[in-house]
Design a protein around this nucleic acid. Structure first.
Lengths: 172, 172
DNA sequence: TAGTACAAGATGAACGCTCAACCATTCCGG
DNA sequence: CCGGAATGGTTGAGCGTTCATCTTGTACTA
């Protein structure tokens, strides 16, 4: 690493707008979801993915990936939601390491009760402020970023620093 | 509230892309800042605002607003950074309720040491994935969202639920 | 000049997330 | 078929954020 590729004026403004929009939107959405349904966005995401899955069941690792969460996060979250009775865990028949997370009826009810207000808050936070063209452009840009970040992302996408420490036994 | 204004297919995809890009970008940037400088993004933001202010000094509330943080967050964060010797707090001469936060020389050094790698990570996460046109469009959309969210935002922008609880003594 | 409303900050508990370990199981090369 | 590496998932400590509350100080109004 030698010299920094600084941001020009335009890029600075773009980055600031990105940051601001990001914070404003997720604050608003998160806060409202918390108030209305008593759960953070990450939990909602998990419940949503499960509800779309066959048998409302997913392996923990698949769940983590599809909800863009680290394994650790999902593990904690599912444990918590199991206590609430929204999810049950069973061990996977074909791979004895694996765990299956299944959405319970109760969990589905809670999710469905949360959806309408959540959707409304997303609309207010994002779409009510955009023209149709702006929305299309936003989508294109976001998808480009995601695509760029999903190929060879420096170190793994999901984080979680690997099974052992940063460099354990990895020599030779 | 009667019927929900659901998201159509296009809006769904836009929202998912927004969420994904948001998570991917802030994960990457946050993680790298933490690794390289040992501070979260929110702290960086605070230090950055202070460094741009006259006398590297800002009132807590102004600092909170300009860093898009809640008062409470800034209070905790500044307390922590004061222990690290990056910031000092003085009471405000003109308003004895107020506190002034000033960036120390040490704090400025730490910030400046953190900047280059942070900027690089932002470039990699965002700008390397976008054409110039996409970047301009992204900026426009983000600014539209921010503008929309900054006027009459339902309840106050910064959060923090007000001086007293949700409805304390407020009756008649 | 009270008295009441409001603003600025601080604070502690609750909570979710991350990081670094750790155990169990499966995969794979010799 | 054995032994090391990789995979799947969990766990606990540490930390930052939020929420509700409190204290102190200012502003407004009667």
């Amino acid at each position: 690493m030698e010299h920094t590729r600084w941001l020009d004026e335009d890029e600075q403004q773009t980055w600031r707008a990105f940051l601001a929009a990001q914070r404003l939107v997720s604050d608003k959405v998160e806060r409202r979801l918390q108030a209305a349904a008593g759960m953070p966005q990450a939990y909602y995401e998990i419940l949503a993915r499960l509800s779309e899955a066959p048998d409302r069941t997913l392996r923990m690792s698949v769940l983590a990936e599809s909800a863009l969460s680290s394994r650790s996060r999902v593990s904690h979250a599912v444990a918590r939601m199991e206590e609430s009775g929204w999810i049950v865990r069973r061990s996977c028949p074909t791979d004895r390491r694996g765990q299956l997370a299944e959405l319970t009826d109760e969990g589905l009810r809670v999710l469905e009760a949360a959806v309408p207000d959540h959707v409304e808050s997303v609309r207010e936070a994002v779409f009510d402020g955009l023209t149709r063209d702006q929305q299309a452009a936003l989508r294109e840009a976001m998808e480009a970023i995601v695509a760029h970040l999903s190929e060879r992302p420096g170190w793994p996408v999901t984080g979680d620093s690997g099974p052992d420490g940063p460099d354990a036994a990895r020599a030779s």
